[in-house]
Write a protein that binds this DNA or RNA. Structure first.
Lengths: 125, 125
DNA sequence: TTGACTGTATTATATGGCTAGTACAGTTGG
DNA sequence: CCAACTGTACTAGCCATATAATACAGTCAA
């Protein structure tokens, strides 16, 4: 059963998107594996203190991305292989890193300073 | 007059926030300076193809942050000094970099790989 | 088998972002 | 002076996000 202990929702981004990202990043990290069971919509919504429909929206999108498999009556399970994870990793990395390099460039920060800053902030958590 | 030629709105983030960030990052970069005139709400909204109220919302927030000064009838002007810019830079950097380090960590990426990836993507633009 | 769980679907309401249109008072330049 | 600009304010509508309540059919374990 996939754990959501490490899921800390932020405001600003839609919750259903954060759930989506949590699953996708877990798959890339290898902490979420093929065949793993997801909590039911009702259980997870109660756990996170949000509406079941919001969880359903996230799971429905995972279904459309073909990352999970659902059938009425049974829990949804992860359906991922090496190839899907490889593409996922590439897409998530590109999206995330593009945004930060764009932001730093707009602030007039050089490549060297950017690298120094990432290293500095990496340790401050 | 501050130019918005480099302003390329993305969808996903509210437009008024992107305008806010564009001004703030420009101030940090030094391309936007104290005393610089901002385009009028009507002119800028026409230029960006958005609603005047959306620009007004962004400018109103800049007013609340004490980064611009507005008076009815006249154009708004930048009102920034070294100290404001220093704080702005610190806050924007912390916010931006925290989000990327958090995302990379969730994907199980090491500090060294993170730095390598930033350097790699930096050149690919 | 059967009761408690599961996924799925529907309708309704509230809020925030964005658009559209209108209005009014202050300034600026010819 | 005054016409054209400026900032500011307001109402109304649309769409996405999130909530709330309910319903129904399929799965699964005791």
């Amino acid at each position: 059963m996939i754990s959501f202990d490490a899921f800390k929702p932020t405001d600003g981004t839609p919750i259903y998107q954060q759930i989506l990202l949590y699953i996708e990043r877990g798959a890339v990290a290898g902490t979420i594996r093929d065949g793993d069971e997801l909590p039911s919509r009702r259980v997870l919504s109660a756990l996170l203190g949000i509406n079941p429909n919001t969880v359903q929206k996230a799971f429905h999108l995972l279904e459309e991305e073909d990352l999970i498999e659902s059938q009425a009556g049974a829990k949804s399970v992860m359906k991922i292989d090496e190839e899907k994870i490889r593409k996922l990793r590439e897409n998530l990395l590109r999206e995330d890193i593009r945004s930060i390099t764009g932001a730093l460039r707009q602030m007039g920060i050089s490549r060297e300073e950017a690298i120094r800053l990432i290293g500095q902030y990496w340790d401050e958590e």
